[in-house]
Design a protein around this nucleic acid. Structure first.
Lengths: 202, 202
DNA sequence: CCATTTAGCGACCGATCGGTTGCTATATTG
DNA sequence: CAATATAGCAACCGATCGGTCGCTAAATGG
């Protein structure tokens, strides 16, 4: 029925699978993402889907990578042009709020990284390790900007960058929950209130 | 093989199922909790387990109730004797830290409510509704203590109790993640640092 | 003591899971 | 143009999923 596509078409097929996989995983989790359902959604056979990834864990890893690309594209690329330090950090946080509030097309079930972290934090294996690595990477990016802001005098000199990054992560997990579980319209404002206290010039 | 037990024994069996169910769900999630595995763990048949709960959703709801009982027993009963307001709030937070750090026997996979919230926040149905209800209940308890603390002058008079409760929830989600995903020994201290800022007399 | 209730078992059901295999038919390569 | 490589399909595998049903045998109530 569906014979060989060109290599270019095959790449597009792979991207289609990953795009859908990211969306499904954000709703059902990385374990709840099943090959059969994914194939049915895309009008493909299970074999056709699995042909692009050797196994389910490999598919999960590819989905995580694709999601990380999307996250960085949405959040970081919008912060990067800003002045390093507080301006860039502020821009990143604003883009982060926007990501959680409005990127329902890509992540209809909310932040995939929060979902994946909670899902795999009590397990072991390559998926868990990748989740942890991505979280650490993001924390490092945040802490670096905080450190720059401190040396620039934009934040109090006794600020602990790791501490601020830690609190930022918690704040945005609360935002994700507020949006997904309670559909609370004040959620973004609450987050900005907390940010203003956390990132105050002191 | 296993004929009728007395009604008293049946109650104990039900409690055994729930205790194990809470532990498994904290690791695997409420969906990853399967009746067959639960039965095998307990040396029972699937029919024997399902006899105490009419369906899997009913089992999930019962597990949530049992977990809420345990959480309130561990955290709230240790805060309740304290003076209403800031002292009680501080005691609750300290017990909450302790719960996340040391109650691995009951919740070996970390806070079940965080897991369940992330797992069901993009779905619908009675399990999701119960998760949301329990979260709201806890937030209300926290906000009430904050409000008492404000009227007692223990916190600045312009403090928004809902805002503080919101930030507390995020802070403890970060703590749960730090413990489960990174096994970070400084996690509790980071949380206390943030608490001292958040609950400062101002 | 006898009738009834019921905790729990074991076998079974259809559906779905992740995964494998053989095949088809086209794109690619020489 | 001929030989080869390969994207994707269809059928199938054993395991497990949630759930049902008939049964047993002891606890319970009259």
């Amino acid at each position: 029925m569906s014979p060989r596509r060109s290599v270019a078409e095959a790449r597009l097929t792979r991207e289609r699978i990953l795009q859908r996989g990211v969306a499904v995983a954000s709703v059902e989790g990385l374990e709840g993402l099943t090959i059969g359902q994914l194939a049915a959604d895309l009008g493909m056979s299970k074999g056709g889907v699995l042909g692009h990834f050797s196994s389910k864990p490999a598919l999960q890893l590819a989905v995580l990578d694709a999601a990380a690309d999307a996250f960085l594209r949405i959040v970081w690329r919008r912060a990067e042009p800003e002045q390093p330090g507080l301006p860039r950090l502020r821009a990143a946080c604003e883009a982060w709020i926007d990501y959680l509030e409005h990127e329902r097309g890509i992540f209809p079930g909310g932040c995939l990284f929060t979902t994946a972290a909670v899902e795999f934090d009590a397990r072991s294996g390559p998926v868990r390790d990748t989740v942890a690595r991505l979280h650490k990477l993001w924390r490092r990016l945040l802490a670096t900007e905080v450190r720059t802001a401190v040396t620039a005098g934009e934040l109090p000199h006794d600020t602990d960058p790791e501490q601020v990054a830690y609190e930022l992560v918690g704040l945005f997990m609360a935002l994700n929950q507020e949006i997904q579980l309670f559909a609370e319209p004040q959620a973004a404002q609450r987050t900005r209130n907390a940010l203003n206290r956390l990132l105050a010039a002191g």
